[in-house]
Simulated assay, not measured.
Amino acid sequence: MTDLTILIAVIALALWPLAFLVLRIRHERKKRRARLERMTKEELEDIGTEELVMAVLKKIGCQPETNEEGHIVFKYQGDDFYIAVEDEARFIMIWNPWWASISMDNPALPYLKEIVNLVNVDSLVTTVFTADEDEKNVGLHSKCHTVFTPKEGQLDEYLKAMLDHFFVTHDAIKQNLQQLGSAASESANQERTKVKGFAAYKENSTPLSSAEEEKK
């Protein structure tokens, strides 16, 4: 037996416990996933929301992980998502952060803000803005707050439908922006197009004031 053969044998023996551990972990995960899939609705009610969400995400082909903030992070159709869970209330908050951005100097930004308001009125998914002063751009982030319990039916189909709706919202915002951009370029000298959205309720708004202002 050559020295090389002996070395290979020694390395193989050294790595065997690690390989065995990896195989064992995979086997246990597979058993756990199979057990979750066999559970009845009543049995699923007894496990935590985070564990339930992780199992359903894996079932629809995602690879969820838990980050340092305790959120479940994953990718769906190439986009970044994270889910914040509330175990006691069976609620989850799904976030799709930074799915788009626009420069603060872009003349389309005022239109975009009005379009987002319009889309938010009729959408299950709400889109919000954050401004990055350093990069001089505005980020778009979408979110959805929903109940997540086996009582909702097939949770894999339910979650997929919720996630798919984020992309419906993306498309609605993009299409409206393109249409308004075309209209604006054709009528540059006309008054800026107004998109109603929440602005339709502006006249009924109650002004807020501080305690000092109320005393005056």
Rank of each mutant, 00 (worst) to 15 (best):
D134F: 02
M93N: 05
E45C: 08
R26Q: 13
Q190C: 05
S123N: 04
A84R: 04
M39P: 01
G61K: 08
G197W: 00
F20Y: 13
L140H: 06
T126M: 00
N120D: 04
K160W: 01
M1F: 06
F91Q: 03
Y76M: 04
I25Q: 04
Q190Y: 13
E157C: 02
T169E: 07
I60W: 06
E69M: 05
P150M: 00
K160L: 13
E68Y: 10
K151C: 00
V128K: 15
K174R: 11
W98S: 04
E65L: 03
H170V: 15
L112N: 08
E43G: 03
L124N: 12
L177S: 14
Y111K: 15
E213W: 15
K136G: 08
S103G: 11
T169H: 02
Y111P: 02
R24W: 06
I115T: 09
E157L: 14
D80H: 10
H165F: 10
I94P: 05
R38I: 02
Y111N: 15
D80I: 07
Y82W: 05
M93E: 11
E157V: 02
V195A: 13
V138S: 01
M93A: 05
T193Q: 12
D156Y: 15
M104K: 03
E50R: 03
T40M: 02
V22R: 11
L57Y: 04
L18M: 15
L15P: 04
A12S: 05
I72T: 12
I115M: 10
